[in-house]
Amino acid sequence: MAAGPEINNNDLKAIVARFNREVIQDGNRESFEALMAPDFVNWSAPSEALRGAETMWKTFSTVLRPAIGDLQVHIHEQLCDGDKVITRKTISGKHVGPLLGVEATGKDIAIDVTDIVRVRDGRYVEHWGINTLAAVVAQLRQG
């Protein structure tokens, strides 16, 4: 059994909800620092060199947030399995800046995401996820 205080499912869900609200939606760097374990690994990153926490922060702060105005994260459901939280959510807003090579269109966009986060001692330790960002960008390219 993992060391540290026992955390129940509602506590785990609250940690992940806080990350989504404060970090992804609001862009709060202090919350990011508080919620990321030093040994965090993003298993969804395209290469080992990009699996650290800082790359995840850069994705939010330099890719998503500048491109999506009034960015909102809507959590549809969360499930817990041990120390993992599975979240189904939508990141939405208006396309107001360049997004992966597509100039602003002013269109409303919505990226559906399902992710799994392992939490230890109240902090993100591992992440796995799938999303529809590539499909959204392809649709924007078509006009």
Rank of each mutant, 00 (worst) to 15 (best):
M1A: 06
M1Q: 03
M1Y: 02
A3P: 03
A3N: 14
A3W: 05
G4H: 12
E6Q: 13
I7W: 15
I7P: 08
I7F: 14
I7C: 13
I7S: 13
N9K: 04
N10W: 06
D11G: 14
D11I: 12
L12Q: 09
K13W: 06
I15W: 12
V16Q: 07
V16H: 02
A17H: 11
A17N: 06
R18F: 05
F19A: 00
R21N: 06
R21G: 03
E22V: 08
E22T: 06
V23Q: 03
D26T: 02
R29P: 01
R29Q: 02
R29C: 02
E30C: 08
S31K: 03
S31T: 11
F32T: 00
E33K: 09
L35N: 05
P38M: 13
D39Y: 13
V41N: 13
V41M: 15
V41C: 15
N42Q: 14
W43S: 12
W43G: 10
A45E: 05
P46V: 09
P46K: 03
S47L: 07
S47G: 09
E48A: 14
E48C: 00
E48R: 11
A49C: 13
R51V: 04
G52C: 05
A53F: 04
E54K: 07
M56Y: 08
M56V: 08
K58N: 13
T59V: 07
S61T: 07
V63Y: 11
L64T: 00
L64N: 00
L64I: 06
R65Q: 13
R65V: 11
G69K: 03
D70E: 14
D70M: 08
L71F: 12
Q72P: 08
Q72I: 14
H74K: 08
H74Q: 11
H74E: 11
E77A: 09
Q78R: 01
Q78H: 04
C80I: 05
D81R: 04
D81H: 08
D81A: 15
D81V: 11
D83R: 02
K84S: 14
V85C: 07
I86S: 02
T87R: 00
I91G: 00
S92W: 04
G93I: 08
G93Q: 12
K94S: 12
K94M: 10
H95K: 02
H95A: 07
V96L: 05
V96K: 01
V96M: 02
G97P: 01
P98I: 01
P98D: 02
L99F: 00
G101Q: 03
E103W: 09
A104C: 02
T105C: 03
T105R: 01
K107N: 11
A110H: 07
A110G: 15
I111Q: 01
V113G: 02
D115T: 07
D115R: 03
V117T: 11
V119E: 10
R120V: 15
V125P: 00
V125G: 04
G129K: 06
I130W: 00
N131H: 12
T132F: 07
A134V: 09
A134I: 09
A135F: 03
V136A: 04
R141M: 07
R141Y: 03
G143L: 10
G143M: 10
